[in-house]
Structure formats: C-alpha cells, structure tokens
C-alpha cells in the first residue's frame, strides 16, 4: 500500500501538483487519469523520488520515503518496477540485456537462470524473437513491451507504469492491460498506472484517481466512473461518442 499525503510540486514557481492525497492499494491496479498536462507523470515521478516534492509525505507500506537514508532508499527502489512513458530502454544493450539488467545488478543468479527468467517475461509480453535486437531496431510498441518486461523481471512489490499501452494497437493494448492486472493479482503488487485510455479504465480500473489542474478532482472505481455526476469527470470521459453510449447503457441498467 502506498499512502500519499498532501503532495505539492512546482517547477520554476509554477505549481503542478497542488496538494494531492490518496491511497494506492496492494494487489489492485490503481489508475491515474487526466488530460494531457494535468500532472500525471509529475505525480508518478514524485512517488518514485525522481522529483522531490516540496511538501507532503509518501509512505510505502509504512516506510516514509523522505525519512529514509540513501541506502534504505536504494533498497526500497530495488522493490520497484517502472515503465517510463518513453520506455527509457538502455540503447547500448540488446532487448535481452535490457530485461536481464535488474537481475544482473541485484541478484546472485547465474547467467542460465537469468536467461530463463528473461525468456519467461519476454514471452509474457508476447515478444519471442527480439532478444538480440537493439532498442533502436524495434518498433515503439515493442519497446513498450520490453520496458514492461524489464519492470517486472525482478518481481517488484510496487509497479509504476506511465501510459503502458499508448502507441500500441488495441489487441496488444488489451493484452498488456490484462498482463499488468494478472501479475498485480498473482504477486500481490501495488500497481499504479497513468493513462488517458478509457479502454484501460474499463478493463482494469479497480481504483481510479482523476487529476485536474494539479488537484484530485475525483476518486472511485470503474463502475462508479460511469455513474458519477462530477462535471470534470463527465467532460473527460464522455469526450468520445462511444463512451457517451456506454454511459447511457449503464444508466439504463
């Protein structure tokens, strides 16, 4: 469980996060949604300690991040898997080396064991013939899947995904969503996902945090989001005709 209390973050005097509090639950897929530029990435990076918030606390199962010493912080981070919005694969390494990297860094596993684990996670993201390719030689969607494989390879306790299925075709997007949900439940991970994909919300939105202008504008689950009268949420969710119809169907039930 990750508890966020009153996080504030500014860049150059410009307040991006204006005091956000919430709880991300263990074994659930927690979604952060909101318009482009609403601060989703900044919030995620603040949770990870890449950005240091000016105020507020973040606690990982009781461990308050800002109170940990550097060694404890690094220790905590080995329990974290992160999928960056731009994948952030190491471009000097092959796909297999990228995925195996956390294992080589932080486990005592031998090469054979690492290779087996890499094969296993690459298969789970439906990539079986890209092992020896460099990130620059595969498509953006494939890079995303490699990034997911790298994030889950070392069995993280916390998984953060910044738009894991943007740039993927609908089939692969659903596959990735379901994969994330599956491993979240299977290994009881605390998963936080940034997205503006309403399909993801419908598929895996067990807990949804809606951000608007740096504030938490709404919070709930995927059933509630189709019934809420919250204006900001309605405007965001029903910008597409398809979802207007979904809502009508929901309300009729």
């Amino acid at each position: 469980m990750i508890e966020v209390k009153n996080i504030e973050k500014s860049f150059n005097g410009n307040k991006i996060l204006k005091g956000i509090s919430t709880v991300f639950e263990t074994g659930k897929t927690n979604l952060i949604i909101g318009q482009s530029g609403s601060g989703k990435t900044v919030l995620l990076k603040s949770l990870l300690g890449i950005h240091t918030p000016e105020s507020g606390t973040i606690s990982f199962d009781g461990r308050i991040y800002s109170e940990l010493n550097p060694d404890e912080k690094r220790e905590l981070r080995t329990e974290i898997g992160m999928v960056f919005q731009g994948s952030a694969l190491f471009d000097s390494m092959t796909v297999a080396e990228n995925v195996g990297f956390p294992l080589r860094m932080f486990t005592k596993d031998n090469n054979k064991k690492i290779q087996e684990r890499v094969d296993f996670v690459l298969k789970r993201v439906a990539l079986t013939d890209a092992h020896k390719k460099l990130p620059s030689e595969i498509s953006g969607g494939m890079q995303k899947r490699v990034a997911i494989a790298r994030a889950i390879v070392n069995n993280p306790k916390y998984l953060f995904c910044d738009e894991p299925n943007s740039g993927l075709d609908p089939n692969t997007a659903i596959l990735i969503d379901n994969l994330i949900k599956e491993i979240t439940e299977e290994y009881n991970i605390t998963t936080v996902i940034n997205t503006h994909d309403m399909n993801s919300v419908m598929e895996i939105g067990e807990k949804i945090l809606f951000l608007k202008d740096g504030l938490k504008a709404w919070e709930g689950n995927k059933d509630e989001i189709f019934r809420t009268d919250n204006e900001a949420v309605v405007a965001f969710v029903y910008s597409s005709n398809l979802f207007k119809k979904v809502r009508e169907a929901y309300l009729k039930e």
Partner: peptide
C-alpha cells in the same frame, strides 16, 4: 546527456542503481 534526456538515468536511479 542522451541518457539523461531519454530518462535512462532516471531508469537506473529508480532501479536503485547509483
């Protein structure tokens, strides 16, 4: 610098690498 702008350095840090 390229590793910085493509977030590869953030990726290293997030994994707990110095």
């Amino acid at each position: 610098g390229t590793m910085r702008v493509t977030e590869q350095i953030d990726a290293l840090e997030v994994m707990g690498v110095n």
